[in-house]
Design a protein around this nucleic acid. Structure first.
Lengths: 343, 343
DNA sequence: CCCGTAATATTACGCGCGTAAAATTATTAT
DNA sequence: ATAATAATTTTACGCGCGTAATATTACGGG
């Protein structure tokens, strides 16, 4: 199928006896040329091995077909998974997604946005680092490039935000835990990188109050994105110090919970909901590995599908102009309680 | 710091009173111009907001500063981790890494190589899908673009291969397991996607034979990259059927082991090396989450640092011409036994 | 101060394609 | 068949920069 290589559109057009501008038109929109012409081009495309030079194409377009995807930490399977879905949707829509990870570092996030700017992308889907982000850099970027924020909210930045309804997450699992046993203590990092954590803590207070229970928050130190390690080490210390007022622990997220489960195991505490168990543990997010922990982790599932789909759809609306940029949309999806063995 | 935006090199050169070709020369190599000129340019660069247009630059270069990084499955934290390290090294060397994941699909891998070709990359670091790869497509690609294969070997494809010494992995952990208890059974997928799996099985046979034990291989069905699920489901069935001849299970990789640990937990089997335990489980790779399983997983650690560093260094040697392309180098790094609680 | 050399400026061309305007041709409706 | 309309061709210019060739300038040494 791959025939002789053709070096330029000029050459290709000459070979098949069609003018270059027409060929150019075809590549920008195959339906913009006569049906017979289109078929002729497509057949020739199989015989000759030709594809437009990306650099020449993009140089002459004001906007490219590139879409930037930026996540704070790609080694976190949550982001890997959501990035994967977003990527796929962009490809299917005829765009060219380019994936970046800030690897937890502010400098890298800034550099990425800098690079992204010169790529002249049609739009960007950005999950900011959160607390570690340089707000002014991101604000600045969003002024120049149509950007949809997801997962991690920064008020008034970008044309839209798509994320999760953290209060609903917390309320749902807190209700469940209170109904089925002792009310939960809340386990989290003292200085969480992700702003969702703060909303979850606040929601925990509200939920507990609404149910008439006294809240207990246990905060552990630790910086960065090594949540499992922080959960295990901090959780171990907290267990030793007897900081948990009840036998039920709600972790701010699943990765922290995975670490906390390890701490429980090391201390010989049996985790689960039946009477032989010493402690119940729950998380939030439905991390891809949460179903394989020992015991499997009860959690609130993020709506991966809706978040990724709506983020992309929103960006497409911005790109094709059918989105009112003056009115910043903020969409929050609810989570689903996943009852497993840990609580 | 960000002053007035300047649209082109022409404009920038005029503003600071230096000829455009000199400025061009500066950007290609800051040391190729006179010291005073260089300082003058760099100071002006702070005052005016100018950066060369990537597309125009790359159009006129035969080779760009792009480096393609292709992994088979980015949601696997092993690849996320190694990709992260490779990315960093490329950036530090002044290159522009572009990360792709085939998401386990042949078509995507092919498409990625196709796109990559038109990006005119200086080089590519490729971890192929393995069994699911279309060999001829990859061979073809490697003929046009300097490509270093890593992790997953395809004989005679690419200018070099960098990976792990699978026989050494297996021998090391098999020795340890035999020394410290019953000889291990080998647990793996019937149709593994990754060619390392086959080498590990073979090495298991050799190691067992050398130690004078009879090998026992348990193979489970399952396709794709959901190793944990396959390990749990297949492992559960194998346990029920009493397929393990000894009380020690060596899993072909850590992800499979994580799933197998879940199966053990579900069956109420206590995993570990002390006398209260019913079974010992070990893996290979030292997956980022292996230290947080319950119990923590005994494994052989991949040398992430060496593999990523040597892959990148090799590619750089190819790029700068100091590598003899006729002689395909094959570098295998040894793993380190990580003794944890599971075996 | 002059000379040789290295750095820079000038000039000029090419890269591959987008795109606008005007001229031409093909298609459809009448 | 003919006019109206749509598609295509021709022509021409621009994008921002790499790069080669030649002329010019700056530099250190004697």
């Amino acid at each position: 199928m791959a025939g002789i290589k053709v070096g330029s559109m000029e050459e290709f057009a000459a070979l098949i006896g069609i003018s270059r501008p027409t060929v150019s038109k075809y590549f920008n929109d195959p339906n913009s040329v006569r049906r017979s012409t289109r078929e002729r081009i497509e057949k020739s495309l199989e015989r000759y091995d030709y594809r437009p030079n990306i650099y020449a194409v993009n140089q002459n377009r004001k906007l490219t077909k590139n879409i930037g995807i930026v996540v704070p930490y790609l080694a976190d399977p949550f982001f890997a998974e959501i990035a994967r879905r977003i990527e796929r949707r962009c490809i299917d829509a005829g765009y060219w997604p380019i994936l970046f990870s800030a690897h937890g570092e502010q400098k890298l996030e800034n550099d990425i946005l800098d690079s992204l700017r010169s790529l002249k992308p049609a739009g960007v889907l950005l999950a900011p680092l959160g607390r570690a982000s340089d707000r002014s850099v991101i604000e600045n970027f969003c002024r120049d490039v149509p950007t949809v924020l997801f997962d991690s909210e920064m008020e008034d930045v970008g044309v839209a935000f798509v994320g999760s309804d953290n209060p609903q997450f917390v309320s749902q699992i807190t209700d469940y835990l209170c109904r089925s046993g002792e009310p939960p203590c809340f386990f989290e990092m003292k200085h969480p990188v992700n702003p969702n954590a703060n909303k979850r803590r606040q929601a925990y207070f509200n939920s507990m109050q609404a149910l008439g229970y006294e809240p207990h928050v246990v905060q552990v130190s630790g910086e960065g994105w090594a949540f499992e390690e922080i959960g295990r080490d901090g959780g171990g210390k907290a267990l030793e110090a007897g900081q948990f007022a009840t036998n039920t622990v709600l972790c701010s997220n699943d990765r922290l919970a995975i670490g906390f489960l390890a701490a429980c195991y090391e201390k010989g505490l049996r985790v689960g909901r039946d009477s032989t168990c010493a402690i119940r543990v729950a998380g939030m997010d439905d991390h891809p590995f949460s179903r394989f922990t020992c015991p499997s982790l009860t959690t609130i599932a993020q709506n991966y599908d809706s978040v990724s789909r709506h983020s992309v759809d929103t960006l497409f609306r911005v790109i094709d102009g059918s989105y009112n940029t003056d009115q910043r949309e903020k969409t929050l999806f609810e989570g689903t309680l996943i009852m497993r063995e840990s609580a």
